[in-house]
């Protein structure tokens, strides 16, 4: 386990080093010539920013996000079940089917309620 964590951190470190190194080289090579216009927001060429982009935007997939969490949890349950499925046999299948069915019914309910529609 500890070896795996070391491997993971070394990989992350190598990736980070590459990023920092490349950006450093760029810093050395680039010709910096900044003006106010260059640093301003790209708005298809328009100079005036007509509204603030950081507003309370409507997230129409909020409910989808909730569904994602539910199904992600289901998925985490399914993985260990799938690994040992061969040795457990029919009973495990039926148990898991009941579990999936409940979630599927939930999905169907959400579908019928019109939550899955992008209005």
């Amino acid at each position: 386990m500890i070896s795996e964590i070391i491997y993971f951190s070394v990989f992350v470190a190598v990736g980070l080093t590459v990023v920092v190194l490349m950006l450093g080289i760029q810093k050395l090579l680039q010709t910096k010539r900044h003006s106010d216009a260059k640093l301003s927001v790209y708005e298809c060429g328009n100079i005036d920013v007509v509204s603030d982009p950081r507003i309370q935007i409507k997230m129409r997939y909020y409910i989808f996000g909730l569904l994602l969490i539910i199904f992600d949890v289901e998925m985490i349950f399914l993985f260990p079940w799938a690994v040992v499925f061969k040795s457990l046999g029919l009973v495990a299948l039926i148990e898991m089917l009941v579990f999936i069915m409940i979630l599927l019914l939930g999905l169907l309910y959400a579908w019928r309620k019109g939550v899955l529609k992008w209005t």
């Binding site: 708005e43 509204s51 507003i55 935007i57």
Partner: peptide, 8 residues
């Protein structure tokens, strides 16, 4: 309440 985003 949400705001509309004005896009050029």
């Amino acid at each position: 309440k949400t705001d509309v985003l004005t896009i050029n």
